[in-house]
Computed example of a mutant assay.
Amino acid sequence: MEKRILIADDHPIYLMGLRALLSPLAGQYHIVDEALTTDEVISKLEFHDIDILVTDFSMPGDKYNDGLALIQLIKRRWPALVIIVVTMIHNPGIQRALRQLGVHAVISKAGLATELVHFIKGLSGTSAFSKPTADALASTGISLTPKESEVLRLLLRGLTVSDISARLNRTKQTVSAQKKSAMRKLGVTTEYELYQQLQQLGLFS
């Protein structure tokens, strides 16, 4: 069954680019509509049954002119929706806040041509909402301890090692060691590679 996509950007040229990028996925994914403002995003989510939203972070709108507030509203009203944010903003704080709100991917417009299709293809045959539990990862041939999986889940929500330490009542050294151990098992060396690997595995918080 085709997955239904809504694309949103206030620049028509980017909308054309998104359509062109996603056209090779026809048969699996179908762009049902597009939006130029945040208000249109909400109205079209209300009108259509959408599976995936690909949206710019900063768009004009009368009612919803704050990107984080918009995403928060969307996640509250459509919790099962897969949200992919495309942006030129490289602020780590904003990216962390988006992950905490449950955004499934934050993709730079500079890397859109390769990263968007790669990410959406990675959704095929996976649950976009499964958490990186030990059982789920074991099905991929990767064996993590429950504590390592818990640390990964919280990292994906945007928490820092210090945040996780306080939440789980573990020392920062212990959390850091569990994070490093999980990354070693996954074959990654940076947090960016970690997020990319978990996206490819279809494991999201």
Rank of each mutant, 00 (worst) to 15 (best):
A105T: 06
S139N: 11
S176F: 07
V117M: 04
Y195H: 08
T114M: 06
G102I: 10
M183I: 06
Q72M: 12
R19A: 05
H104G: 08
E40C: 09
A80C: 12
Q28Y: 15
Q197H: 08
E34W: 10
R157V: 07
Q199V: 08
K44E: 02
L186R: 00
I120L: 11
R4M: 14
Q173P: 02
E150D: 12
R77T: 15
D51Y: 12
L6P: 06
L112E: 04
L68E: 09
P60H: 04
K121W: 03
K172T: 14
R184K: 07
V161E: 00
E2W: 13
Q173R: 05
G27C: 09
A128N: 11
M88W: 09
G125Y: 13
G27K: 03
I94K: 07
L68K: 04
L36V: 05
A8V: 08
I89C: 09
I31F: 12
K109L: 07
L6W: 10
K63W: 13
I50A: 01
G202C: 03
L70G: 02
N91K: 02
A166M: 12
T190P: 00
P79R: 09
K179V: 01
L73A: 03
Q100P: 07
L123V: 11
I74R: 03
I84W: 11
T126Q: 13
S181M: 00
L18M: 13
Y29R: 05
T171L: 07
